[in-house]
């Protein structure tokens, strides 16, 4: 059964007024997760091969080659899971 949990180790709300959400991919699945995301999302910019600025369904986010992603303006956990499911499967 395809599940976001196959790729995601932790989801953390950031501390700060921005209310961003950080998604931490499982270490052994991070490269596969990033590959899948890059195939689905629109690449806006690639900074030094470390940060990928992406957009998907009007949601902007950044993926880091270290296996973390930072999502902005996410309304709730359900919306985040919906986007991650679309991006990863």
């Amino acid at each position: 059964m395809a599940s976001v949990e196959n790729y995601v180790a932790r989801i953390e709300g950031t501390c700060g007024a921005e209310k961003d959400v950080i998604v931490v991919f499982k270490y052994d699945k991070k490269d596969e997760a990033i590959d899948r995301i890059l195939k689905k999302a629109q690449l806006k910019n690639c900074l030094a091969g470390i940060i990928f600025e992406l957009a998907f369904n009007n949601v902007s986010f950044r993926v880091y080659s270290s296996g973390k992603a930072i999502f902005r303006s996410i309304k709730n956990k359900e919306e985040l899971f919906k986007i991650l499911t679309s991006l990863l499967f």
Binding site: G16, D20, I51, Y64, S66
Partner: peptide, 10 residues
């Protein structure tokens, strides 16, 4: 954002 900066350093 400060989180982007921290993730880049990370």
């Amino acid at each position: 954002s400060s989180h982007d900066v921290a993730l880049y350093f990370d």
